[in-house]
Amino acid sequence: MIETQGLGKIYGRGLYALRDLNLTIDKGEFVFLTGPSGAGKSTLLRLLLLQERPTEGDVIVAGRNLSRLTRNEVQAYRRTVGFVFQDFKLIATKTVFENVSFALRVLGMPVEQQRRRTYQVLKWVGLQHRLNSRPDELSGGEQQRVAIARALVNEPHLVLADEPTGNLDPDLSLEIMNLFRDINASGTTVVVATHDRELIKWVGRRVVQLEHGQLAGLPEAPR
């Protein structure tokens, strides 16, 4: 599903965020990216989401070399990827329902289909009773569930999450991780960047440890 070959990202004057990273993630896998701050976790996710381009090497996702995609192909690729951020990135002026359906509306999906799929996915994350609430009326955990619903509504093959529980307390973090486990159980590849060791232990999936932009080893957590 995901393969990086000699991947490198340099910022500013020769500062390596990632260096010679060779990594393979299989289709349907659940992988944690972990490591201290500045290890390159978020950079790798940004490269996978094509928010940035690599300085060196290649990123291949589902057989496509992301470095070679045109601007329109980048947009088409992103339609197959769901994303979840630590700060939720919800639109404050829209309701829960609108935040999620927006992801379908801007893809030109018919209104009826938008409504049906939005409702289904909000029900799946347990927010069917908060459809008309605005983000500032929700708890952190609920906001993150809205963000997850938005990531899933377009039925992506790959879900990327950057510190999705960074702003949540331990109980809510477990709740969110359960959602990611369920997403993965349906066959979607999930990559979660986190530095929360307790959470990683609790979920118990493959861990990719990064340090100074390089692989620090591939410890296998119990599955």
Binding site: L49, Q51, N72, R78, K89, I91, A103, R150
Partner: peptide
């Protein structure tokens, strides 16, 4: 801006953006 960022991330066509 926030909407545009989301539109870009979900892969909205440029005609929509």
């Amino acid at each position: 801006r926030a909407e545009i960022d989301i539109m870009q991330l979900v892969g909205a066509p440029f005609s929509y953006i």
